[in-house]
Simulated assay, not measured.
Amino acid sequence: MLLLLPPTSLRTQDTFGPILIGGLEEQATAGAASGLVGCVRELQVNGRELSIVGEATRGRNVENCNVPVCERRPCGHGGTCVSDAENWFCECTPGRHGKLCQFEACVEDPCGHGATCVRRGRGGEGGAAGPVCLCPFGRTGPLCDDPIHVTVPSFDGTDEFGFTSFLAYPAVPGLDDAFEFLVRFTLANNSSALRDNLIFFAGQKGKGLDGDDFLALGLEGGRVVYRYNLGSGTASLFSDPVDTRLHMHTIHLGRTLTRGWLQVDGQRNVSGASPGQLSGLNVFSQLYVGGLNEFTPALLPDGARFPQSFQGNVLDENALFNEVRMSLKPATTRHSQLVRVVT
């Protein structure tokens, strides 16, 4: 296997020759068996991700590497899973849509202002069938026609239809070597909100493949759990049981290279390290708070598969990089499904 990419500037003034991936050109010409046997999913040079296939100038003996997600048969309702070396998707049958073909398409779309229309099938909990408008951040009402100024975001978990509340933030820069997060929140209750609930997640391109880098915070069995994977194994840090007598809870967490730490309310500080040699967190997706778009826990990386989304209010969220505190603001380019109403 051999791929040739164009010369790349690795220093300010120096330009090196072509980048060879998988072997040397003379080995490929001679038909030698040495060189890489396997798949290359990603290549970065000085923080810039190169398109392994798209930027290659020539190559030899390179075949397609199937993404293993399709082996799980994730597509529902007759959908077909299609994968290539970079990604996977479901080809849905007519009348279905969504990442896993889980939504029934609306015959007519009554929703406004960029809202997402999904159809509730036969009705649930006594409800009638019909379209459901998933309102973008800042809109509410039956058809998402009414503006709303959200000051304290409230998340109501995952409902019986599989929809979830969430906020999507721009990809947070500077997570590679070190970071700190401070989150203050209240819980909707002390039962279902403390079982297995995702608080926030950022993953490598959001593909949900095992082995991908990710950062996740959640509630599990009454404890706060903080997990991250730098590519060579998952670190898991657990707090003591959350004191349900407190109205407001504070989570302070961070990481420097492989070592991470977690402190919840007035509890002791918990620390640990991720296994393996890799020490940089490489995530390219947006930061999701409260849940995810089309919440599908089975497709999250192993260690981040919380079956429910967050139930409660987030009062404050900040990130600290190089001693500079940054208040996180919702992305304006992505919808945040905070209000869902049925017409």
Rank of each mutant, 00 (worst) to 15 (best):
L2Y: 12
L2A: 04
L3N: 02
L4P: 02
P6H: 06
D14N: 10
D14F: 14
F16Q: 14
I19W: 02
I21S: 05
G22K: 07
G23M: 04
Q27S: 14
T29Y: 13
A30F: 14
G35Y: 03
G35E: 00
E49R: 01
E55K: 05
A56I: 14
G59W: 02
G59Y: 03
N64W: 09
N64L: 15
C65G: 08
N66L: 15
P68E: 04
C70W: 05
C70I: 06
P74D: 03
C81D: 01
S83L: 05
D84G: 07
E86D: 14
L100C: 08
C111R: 00
G112V: 14
H113G: 08
A115N: 06
A115E: 06
V118R: 14
R120C: 12
G121T: 14
G123C: 04
G130D: 00
C133G: 04
L134S: 02
F137N: 05
G141D: 08
D145S: 13
H149I: 12
V152A: 09
P153G: 08
S154I: 09
T158A: 02
L167I: 05
A168M: 10
A171P: 04
A171C: 11
P173A: 04
G174H: 05
D176C: 01
E180Y: 08
F185N: 00
N189A: 09
S191Q: 13
S191R: 15
A193L: 09
D196L: 02
I199V: 07
F201N: 07
G206E: 00
G208T: 07
A216F: 02
L219P: 07
V225K: 11
V225T: 06
R227E: 01
R227C: 10
N229P: 01
L230M: 03
G231C: 01
S232E: 06
S232V: 07
S236W: 10
F238K: 02
S239D: 01
M248L: 15
T250G: 09
H252F: 12
H252S: 15
L253T: 06
G254E: 00
R259P: 04
G260V: 01
V264K: 00
G276W: 09
L281A: 08
N282P: 09
S285C: 00
Y288C: 11
V289D: 00
E294H: 08
L299R: 09
L300W: 09
F306L: 12
Q308P: 03
F310W: 06
N313P: 08
L320R: 15
M326N: 13
L328W: 10
P330R: 02
P330D: 05
P330L: 07
S336H: 12
Q337T: 15
V339I: 12
T343D: 13
